[in-house]
Write a protein that binds this DNA or RNA. Structure first.
Length: 408
RNA sequence: CGGGCUGUAGCGCAGUUUGGCAGCGCGCAUCGUUCGGGACGAUGAGGCCGUGGGUUCAAAUCCCACCAGCCCGACCA
C-alpha cells in the first residue's frame, strides 16, 4: 500500500476528547475516528487490524469444532420475554418501538436467539453438541463510555454458544474453549490471567474472565501467589479470601482489563424457554448451555495499551496492518517496494513527497513491526532495517531482509 | 443518573474576568528554496464563536434553558 494514495493523514496533536493511550494513538494514526461518545468508525488501516484479530480468533474457534454463523441484531421483545430478560436487561439494552407498535431491541448478547434457533427443529440427544459463533456489532447502553475502544456503546464482539446434552459434555467443551482462549490471547500479544468472577446478568454461577494487567483497567483481580489464578474482587468474599484452585491465601492485587469471558449457563435458558431434547429413552430433558465472548474492538484497544511508547504504537506482528513500513527517501525505494511485494510481504510504502523526519515520525506512530529505509545514505545494494521496538538500524541486502521477514 | 470542568477554522488553543473589527500555532492551497528525525520564506483559502431564547446602541464575552465532550461517583463485555 502506498501512503501517497492513502490520504487519511495522521494528526500531530492528540484530540482533546482522547482519554487514554489507545484513543490518542489510534486516533492520531487515523485507525479510528470517534462518531459520538463510545462509538467509533474504523478507517481502512484500523479495519485491517480488526480483520487480523478476527482471523486469529476464527482459526481457533474452528479448531474447537465450532461453526461460524450470524445471528440477528434486531430482535422482538417477545423473544426476550421468554427468559425474562426484556425487563432485567432494560438498563443496558437499546429498546424502542419500530414504525408500527412492535417493541424491538438491539441484541446485546444472543443466548435467546441461539436457543430459539435450536427449537426450530426436533432435538435429539444424538445431535448434540451444537457450537456456533459469530462476529457481530453489539449495542449496550453504557452509562459512561470511556478509554477509547475499551468501553463503548457500540462494539464488535465474537460470541460463541454451545449446547450440550449433558453437564459432563459441556464441561469438557468449556475447558477446550478456555484452552483456545489462552492460545488466542497469546497470539494477540495479550498476556492473560484466568479469573474467577460472577455471572452478572447471565448466570448465578461463577464465570471465568480473561484479564490482562493494565493500570487503565477497571477491574481489580486478586492473583494467587502460588498458582497465578485470578479471583475478581467482586467474588473474593464469596471464596473466603482463599484460592479455590490451590488453597493459597497470599494474593497480589492488580488493575486489569477484561478481554474475554466464558459462562456456564447450565440448563437455565433451556428450562426458561421450554426448549428440550429427547434422550435415549425418549424422555424430554433440558439441555446445557454455555456462552463465550471476546471483544474484538476492546482487544484492539488493549493491544495498544500494552504495546506502545511515547512515539506511537508497536503492533505485534500477528495483528499489524503490514509487516514492513518502507520509508522511501530516494527513487531506488520504488524497486525495493516492488521486490517486497513480489516476495509476498505486506508492506506500507511511504512514497510521499515529505521530509525524512515526517516519514520517520509517521512510521513510529503507525507502528509496523519493521521499518526499512532506502535513502541517499543507504549503501548501494542494501537497505536499512530497524525494528519498531529497537534502537539499532542495520544495513543489509534486500535479499537478507526478505529472508528475515519470512522467518517470522 | 448525581457533582465538577469544558465547547471559538480540519486539529490544538488564546480571547470571556472589565461587552466594542474573529485571533494564534499546526494542517490545507499556490510559488520558490530545502531534503536522513515532524525544514524555511512569500502569498492565500477556510468561522452558525455548540443550539435556542433574553439583556443591551452593541454579545464569543452578561443572563436563562437545552445539547455535546471530558473528569469523579453510581453502573457495566
Amino acid at each position: 500500500m502506498r501512503l501517497s494514495t492513502y490520504n487519511f493523514k495522521t494528526r500531530r496533536e492528540t484530540p482533546q476528547d482522547a482519554d487514554s493511550a489507545n484513543a490518542a494513538l489510534l486516533s492520531r494514526g487515523r485507525f479510528i475516528e470517534r462518531g459520538m461518545t463510545g462509538v467509533y468508525n474504523f478507517l481502512p488501516m484500523g479495519w485491517v487490524v480488526m480483520e487480523n484479530i478476527m482471523s486469529i480468533i476464527r482459526k481457533h474457534m474452528n479448531s474447537t469444532g465450532a461453526y461460524e454463523g450470524r445471528f440477528t441484531t434486531l430482535q422482538d421483545k417477545q423473544l426476550w420475554d421468554r427468559a425474562g430478560r426484556w425487563e432485567s436487561g432494560k438498563d443496558i439494552m437499546y429498546q424502542f418501538k419500530d414504525h408500527g407498535e412492535r417493541e424491538v431491541g438491539l441484541g446485546f448478547t444472543h443466548e435467546e436467539v441461539f436457543v430459539d434457533l435450536l427449537s426450530r427443529q426436533p432435538l435429539s440427544y444424538a445431535d448434540f453438541p451444537y457450537k456456533v459463533y459469530q462476529f457481530q456489532t453489539k449495542f449496550r447502553f453504557e452509562a459512561r463510555p470511556k478509554s477509547g475502544l475499551l468501553r463503548g456503546r457500540e462494539f464488535l464482539m465474537k460470541d460463541l454458544y454451545s449446547a450440550h446434552a449433558t453437564d459432563e459434555e459441556l464441561k469438557t467443551y468449556y475447558d477446550q474453549v478456555k484452552e483456545a482462549y489462552h492460545t488466542i490471547f497469546t497470539e494477540l500479544g495479550i498476556p492473560v490471567i484466568e479469573t474467577l468472577a460472577s455471572g452478572g446478568v447471565f448466570t448465578d454461577n461463577f464465570s471465568h474472565e480473561f484479564q490482562t494487567i493494565s493500570p487503565i483497567g477497571e477491574d481489580e483481580v486478586y492473583i494467587c501467589d502460588q498458582c497465578k489464578m485470578g479471583i475478581n474482587k467482586e467474588v473474593i468474599e464469596k471464596v473466603g479470601h482463599k484460592c479455590p484452585n490451590c488453597g493459597g491465601t497470599q494474593f497480589s492485587i492488580e488493575k486489569t482489563i477484561e478481554v474475554g469471558n466464558t459462562f456456564d449457563l447450565g440448563t437455565y435458558y433451556s428450562e426458561k424457554m421450554a426448549v428440550t431434547y429427547a434422550d435415549s429413552e425418549d424422555v424430554q430433558k433440558p439441555f446445557w448451555l454455555a456462552s463465550y465472548g471476546i471483544g474484538i474492538s476492546r482487544a484492539m484497544g488493549t493491544i495498544v495499551e500494552l504495546h506502545h511508547d511515547d512515539k506511537g504504537i508497536i503492533w505485534p506482528e500477528s495483528v499489524a496492518p503490514a509487516s514492513v513500513h518502507l520509508v522511501g527517501l530516494t527513487e531506488r525505494a520504488e524497486a525495493v517496494y516492488q521486490q517486497l511485494i513480489e516476495a509476498g510481504i505486506l508492506v506500507i510504502y511511504d512514497d510521499r513527497a515529505l521530509s525524512a523526519g515526517e516519514k520517520f515520525a509517521d512510521a513510529d506512530l503507525l507502528g509496523m513491526p519493521v521499518r526499512i529505509t532506502v535513502g541517499a545514505k543507504t549503501p548501494e545494494g542494501q537497505v536499512e532495517w530497524k525494528n519498531r521496538d529497537g534502537e539499532r538500524s542495520d544495513n543489509m541486502t534486500l535479499e537478507t531482509a526478505i529472508n528475515k521477514l519470512k522467518e517470522d
